[in-house]
Amino acid sequence: MAFDYEYYLRQDKMPHIWCPGCGLGVMLKSMLRAVHGMGWKKDDVVVVSGIGCTGRIPGYVDFNTLHTTHGRALTFAIGIKMVKPHLNVIVVGGDGDMLAIGGNHFIHAARRNVDITAIVYNNEIYGMTGGQVSPTTPHGWRTTTTPYGNLEPRMDIVEIAMGAGATFVARSTVYHTGQLEDYIKKAFEHKGFSVVEVLGHCHTGLGRRNKRPSAVQNFQWEKTVAIPLKAMEKLPPEKREGKIPMGIFRDDKEKVEYTEIYKELMKKAAG
């Protein structure tokens, strides 16, 4: 039987605002299948976002939903999770939202290891505002604010998440939808702060200015640029150039999750 997306979508909010061919719809579908796979009740799921194209997801899904300020979704999510730890809290955001303006919150949410899943749509650009450079834009690329090419090096979301102490870290793409669903579900299952970077595209904002104007070209790119982690490790360094590893980079079940730690503290403090 075909998957019943409609059960999870707010039908009356369609059509969505996304451009035809954007990877966000693909990512959302993978996320909904993963939620379904968890068997969670809709009442027990909270989806929180900041601002951006990715940030519009909460408006479309039939859960408890919160569309916050640019970059700060994780902070609201922590408040929610600490008050009702039984809720399953998912935060979605773009690369600018999560790693530029929200970078500090991202690092500290990872460090605390609160049981929240952060799904980052990495289209390497500020989509919603019309294609300005983001922290993940490749060096040299043209954007509306780097007309001479991006002067800065790109940031690696997986490495930031790992360095900050996230206990589950994975990367997939909007081309590899089965794998993406699997990683998101594993992130949901994980007790602790989990990050799934979803390599996607913004063909209208970034692709158009950098020789990848069509959606198909972008899906093709995602297909070829992303190399499974194991295969990547086997490649000689010169062949790794320009490739992006995908896989599960960390799955640490040892580190105790923050709401659990807090529960223990409450018991101790109450004596």
Partner: peptide
């Protein structure tokens, strides 16, 4: 942000 999230959760 956390204060608002908590308040929305009751």
């Amino acid at each position: 942000g956390a204060v608002i999230g908590a308040s929305l959760t009751g």
